[in-house]
């Protein structure tokens, strides 16, 4: 119960009312300073971690999608989680937020163990996520989407919902907070429209704004820039930096390296389910472990024309042999191979 109260206490901060929140970009410099001199080894200890993850494992049959030994997320910073396709980033994300179960491991948020906690309870204690495929609630208006995010609503209990005078004041308060956020995210003109009528980029903005209505301490963004046009990307980037300015911690999954370099204070790299490196954004991409994970360990060995032809012929022969053996693309064996391939 007191976790709920804590969430409520935090909500004004999320709306940007906290007086001590500096607005001059101090926090960015402060966050960078916190990482100074840290080793770039996976699982390196941070000075003030908000989220500490230990030995988290997720297996899908024979495939180990996630196997993270130790990771800490620094409070008040923007941490990027990157990695090649199929590295297990989203699965890891889902586990941390309670949307997927873990086969083993534990993790703490503000020192409180939250593994095994239901997704809605994790959101209530201040760890709120967005989704890779945006989940705008299409047939609700933009404003209703926003209002939904507010916590501890009196009118959300069945019996009290029947007496509007009990919740009307709170609803007005929530609406005001929602309108402020909508203005900040430049969605105020759309407030009465169905969320389903928004463009892809606007939905991303709405989802982020809606997450802020919860009053989170840690915002987890799953590919916030996927499918967003370049003009809007800049605005989204600004909003993510804004979160840090307001005292929130951001952890996000992203593919776009330019973006990661631009806004993150620290980068965690995953490959094949494991954290293989950590480090500041400026140098992490020249780390050999990262380069190997992205491009393959032998990417820089020269390849002669004869060798290339030989490899091609081999691959084709293999494919033909396979096609002759297997009746159709739906056979379970092919499926298993495809899944495994995706895992790598």
């Amino acid at each position: 119960m007191h976790a709920d109260e804590a969430a409520a206490d935090r909500s004004p901060k999320a709306a940007g009312h906290t007086p001590q929140a500096p607005t001059d970009g101090n926090r960015g410099a402060h966050a960078t300073a916190a990482f100074a001199g840290l080793a770039t080894e996976p699982g390196v200890a941070k000075p003030d971690p908000i989220l500490v993850v230990d030995n988290v494992v997720r297996r899908f049959g024979g495939l180990t999608a996630v196997d993270v030994e130790h990771v800490e997320i620094q409070r008040g910073s923007i941490t990027a989680l990157i990695g090649p396709n199929g590295a297990g980033k989203t699965t890891f994300f889902n586990q941390l937020t309670g949307f997927d179960s873990a086969d083993a491991g534990q993790w703490t948020f503000n020192g409180r163990r939250i593994n095994g906690l239901a997704a809605h309870k994790i959101a209530r204690i201040g760890m709120v996520r967005t989704f890779q495929l945006t989940k705008a609630l299409s047939k609700l208006t933009v404003l209703e989407n926003m209002r939904l995010g507010a916590q501890k609503q009196i009118g959300e209990s069945f019996l009290r919902a029947l007496i509007p005078s009990l919740w009307r004041d709170q609803e007005d308060e929530i609406t005001q907070r929602a309108e402020e956020l909508l203005t900040r995210f430049k969605l105020d003109a759309k407030r009465g429209d169905f969320a389903g009528s928004l463009s892809g980029g606007q939905r991303k903005l709405l989802e982020m704004a809606r997450a802020l209505m919860v009053g989170p301490e840690l915002v987890m963004l799953d590919e916030p820039m996927a499918g967003v046009n370049p003009a809007l990307t800049q605005s989204l980037l600004g909003h993510v930096k804004d979160l840090r300015e307001q005292g929130m911690t951001v952890l996000f999954v992203e593919h776009d390296m330019d973006m990661v370099r631009d806004i993150s204070d620290w980068v965690v790299v995953m490959a094949q389910g494991q954290v293989i490196a950590e480090g500041p954004p400026g140098t992490i991409m020249s780390d050999t472990r990262v380069v190997d994970a992205y491009l393959g360990a032998h990417h820089d060995t020269p390849l002669s024309a004869e060798e290339e032809e030989r490899q091609l012929a081999e691959a084709e022969a293999e494919l033909e042999a396979k096609a002759a053996q297997e009746p159709g693309p739906d056979s379970p064996e092919t499926d298993a191979t495809a899944q495994e391939g995706a895992g790598r």
Binding site: F99, H120, K135, S138, L140, N145, E156
Partner: peptide
């Protein structure tokens, strides 16, 4: 509102603490 939101996407509603 929570009910209608569940109709649209229950995971989104879960992520908002309901």
């Amino acid at each position: 509102r929570v009910l209608k939101a569940i109709r649209e996407d229950e995971d989104a509603v879960r992520s908002l603490g309901k």
